[in-house]
C-alpha cells in the first residue's frame, strides 16, 4: 500500500513518518507541497515540523499550499489522512478536523514521552488499538493547546470524535485533555504527539522492560494499512 508523506517548507519529521510507513509494511511515497499530484497514494500523512516558521498561525500557511487542494478533496472522498503535530494544526486550519490550536498554557515548548488513552479505535488510523488502550509516544510542541467552543466540544465528545486524550498530566492546557480528534467519518485524524517516533527498537520512549524500546506508534501505520485492505474486501 502506497502512503504519501507531504514535505512542506519547514517540515521536520517527514523522514521518520516515511520510515514508520515502511516498518509497518507499507510503501512510503514522498510528496511535495508545491505539486498538484498525490501520485496514486491510498493514504496521506501531514508530518510534524514548523512549516513556514509557524508564521501567521501554526499550520495556517501550509493549509493553503497547492497540494492541499488535492488533500482536502481526497479527504472528503474518504481517503485516510493523518496529521501529526504541525500536520494536526494544518488539518484544523483547513477545517478538515474541528478546533484550533493556541500556545501551550505553560508558555514554553514541551517535549516529553506522553501517555495517551485511545478513546476511539474505530478510525482509519486506530483499528489496531484496543478501545481504551493506554500508549506512550513522544510529544514535542509549543502550540499544542487544543481549543474549540463549548458547542463543538460537546458535539465531538458525543460523536466519538475525540480520538486520543492525555493521561496523567495535560502537557499544554488542551480542553478536556484532548490530544487528538477525527472528522465525523473517521478517515481524517489529527493528534499532537508523534507516533512516528515510537516505531523502532532503540529509538522509542523508555519502557519498564528496556530503554527506548517503546513501539506504541507503530499501530497507527499498521491500522491504516489494515483498514484500507478491509475496506476493499
Amino acid at each position: 500500500m502506497r502512503v504519501g508523506v507531504i514535505t512542506f517548507p519547514g517540515s521536520l519529521d517527514e523522514r521518520d513518518a516515511q520510515r514508520a510507513v515502511k516498518l509497518a509494511g507499507g510503501t512510503p511515497v514522498a510528496l511535495w507541497h508545491g505539486a498538484h499530484d498525490l501520485e496514486g497514494v491510498e493514504a496521506i500523512i501531514l508530518p510534524g515540523g514548523f512549516s513556514y516558521g509557524d508564521y501567521l498561525r501554526a499550520g495556517s500557511i501550509a493549509s493553503h499550499a497547492p497540494i492541499m487542494a488535492e488533500v482536502i478533496d481526497a479527504a472528503h472522498k474518504g481517503m485516510p489522512v493523518l496529521g501529526i503535530c504541525n500536520g494536526f494544526q494544518m488539518l484544523a486550519e483547513a477545517r478538515l478536523v474541528p478546533g484550533a490550536h493556541g500556545r501551550n498554557d505553560c508558555g514554553t515548548f514541551v517535549r516529553r514521552d506522553q501517555k495517551l488513552i485511545v478513546e476511539n479505535n474505530n478510525t482509519a488510523w486506530t483499528t489496531d488499538f484496543a478501545q481504551g488502550e493506554e500508549i506512550i509516544i513522544p510529544l514535542k510542541n509549543a502550540d499544542g493547546r487544543f481549543v474549540a467552543n463549548a458547542d463543538t466540544i460537546k458535539r465531538i465528545e458525543d460523536n466519538g470524535q475525540v480520538t486520543f486524550r492525555y493521561v496523567g498530566m495535560n502537557p499544554n492546557g488542551s480542553l478536556d485533555d484532548i490530544a487528538g480528534v477525527s472528522n465525523e467519518a473517521g478517515n481524517v485524524v489529527g493528534l499532537m504527539p508523534h507516533p512516528e517516533h515510537a516505531v523502532e527498537p532503540g529509538f522509542g520512549p523508555d519502557t519498564a522492560q528496556a530503554m527506548r524500546s517503546g513501539l506504541d506508534g507503530l499501530k497507527f501505520f499498521t491500522s491504516v494499512i489494515q483498514s484500507t485492505i478491509l475496506s476493499k474486501a
Binding site: 501567521l56 498561525r57 495556517s60 493553503h64 484544523a92 486550519e93 478546533g99 484550533a100 490550536h101 493556541g102 481549543v147 474549540a148 467552543n149 463543538t152
Partner: peptide, 8 residues
C-alpha cells in the same frame, strides 16, 4: 478567511 482563525 486567512489572517484570522474564527475558532480562536
Amino acid at each position: 478567511d486567512i489572517l484570522s482563525n474564527s475558532v480562536i
